[in-house]
Design a protein around this nucleic acid. Sequence first.
DNA 1: CTCTTTAGTTATCTAAGGTTACCAAAATGT
DNA 2: ACATTTTGGTAACCTTAGATAACTAAAGAG
Lengths: 128, 128
Amino acid sequence: MELLKNKAGKRVFKKTDECAIRNVVAQIGDKWSMLILFSLVDGPDRFNSIKSRIEGISQRMLTQTLRDLEREGYINRTVYPEVPVKVEYKLTEMGNELVKPLYTLVLWADEHHKAIKQSRKAYDERVQ
Amino acid sequence: MELLKNKAGKRVFKKTDECAIRNVVAQIGDKWSMLILFSLVDGPDRFNSIKSRIEGISQRMLTQTLRDLEREGYINRTVYPEVPVKVEYKLTEMGNELVKPLYTLVLWADEHHKAIKQSRKAYDERVQ
DNA sequence: CTCTTTAGTTATCTAAGGTTACCAAAATGT
DNA sequence: ACATTTTGGTAACCTTAGATAACTAAAGAG
């Protein structure tokens, strides 16, 4: 993985879909994917319930991102033919696995949040 | 962290900048940030060298993303007044720390790459 | 006196991301 | 009878992130 190197022995990152980093970014680097995944860690949930729990998400983006996550294999979609219809989304086995490394990342971000804010402030003052 | 819950006891994700997940995505969810960070893990490097190692990145996006990463505090920028001028970028202490959880994520993505591809194929056949 | 290399900036264009408004179907309220 | 609510969407539009390409400066090489 990522072992391609140039003459100087430095890593090279090709466009190919074999580049794991580009895959990660393409799959969960968008604005909503991670939020939706984390909204399902405590159990399955319905469309409108997810929507109400993720502040600022539009119906369109929720639909679209749920489709994408389903396509990748991170969530399952089940329709219950009640009235009104009920659609339940839940993490797959793989989705549950994915959330683990994501969670360590989120914890890291939370711990370093203050330091990052300070860095931004210092940069803005330095650069004016 | 992320402990806000609604009446049903489910997590709620507010727009506020205190939401760690939104911060992670905003900081490194763009197309180039992770690639640049990983291009510096084996040591500092210069602008054009980084550019040549990250296939497809334009000068504009490299400049812009390097500035952003510097502002967040993940990399340092050093100008050597040689001729022609040499500009070196290196990970900060915090940048090095950030790469660790990112790396476990990238490893995960690499391991599950085949399963994801299969899931996509199955989805596309199912939905046509 | 043009060419190269360095590390950018500026201007413009387009594709992806996102907002707003609208849809159907059936129960419930008045 | 008729509007309202709740469900999970879709269609048309707009906005911004990212791509493309041309331009800059500064000094040495030919």
